[in-house]
Amino acid sequence: MSLSQAASNADLSKETEGTTPVLSLSNVSKNFPGKKVLKSIDLQIAPGELVALVGNNGQGKTTLMKVILGLLIPDSGEVLINGESATSNRSIAQKSIFGYLPETTAFYPNLTGLETLHYFAVLKQEGRSKVLEVLKIVGLAQAAQYRVKTYSKGMKQRLGLAQALLGKPKLLLLDEPTNGLDPSGIHEFYQILGRLKNEGVAILMSSHLLAEIESRSDALALLKDGVISANGTVETLIRDAELSSIIKFHKGANFDVVRLDELLQLHTTEKIYSEHTDSFVLTCHPSHKQALLLSLLSADALISNLIVNDPGLEELFLQLNSGLEIT
């Protein structure tokens, strides 16, 4: 076999491995007495993929994570972990791929950070040397000798992340992981996630902080009323949602309101004038955006100080939650 053949075979095997999702849910439902929390959930996560789970409070994000972990048994549907069925009680081998950070964990106030992690390490059958490593990763090495009752919320969150990293997880389930972290903590946290992604760790993370997720997640799953009402990359979802851009400008040297109205009429767009700032605001459908911008810019000194605000995850989230579903 030539070197190039060997390389292409290696690529092929990598690709084959990559196509088996670490986690695959199909048609998963879970009811609580008097309430259907999850209705027919389909979700897949590939190795090295970061999927953000978003949705308002009480939409079933935590329940979904608990179903994946086997803490709740689904009423119907199938959960596959590494391609193997895991719908009822999880085997120890299936559990050992998880790293889980619950939404709130108080830990044990009388143990030190180091003792806490030693305890969790034994329970994950992990060596003590790994404890020091994860303490360093999450930036708790200095505080490891103090009791957990002296820790701030952010430090407890770091401790929670540290225990999730024990035992070489293949699938991290993080329930609102950046809660309580300061901005530099959030930055460090995503750096850690980035490294883990590169190592092939799949990550499912719930969060309310849309701005933070937008640039960092590979895919987004929006949970609403127990169903995933949107699933895909942030870019695709925004494009498919056909969300309007906001265009702002001031009057130009040759401003003429009749000319402007004619131009806007061509692009079926209406203007709002703000007396306070002496500026105009347009809400523009994406299909007209390019042509409208061209017209505005080519009209000689009709307008000035043009600003275009394209829709982001926040606008998408608000639209999806307002009931307009994307198919």
């Binding site: 120890i92 559990k95 050992s96 998880f98 108080a106 969790f120």
Partner: peptide
């Protein structure tokens, strides 16, 4: 359970 560690430990790889 109230501390949140019951769910966490139930997700750990032991009976």
């Amino acid at each position: 359970y109230e501390r949140g560690t019951l769910d966490l430990l139930r997700s750990y790889p032991f009976n």
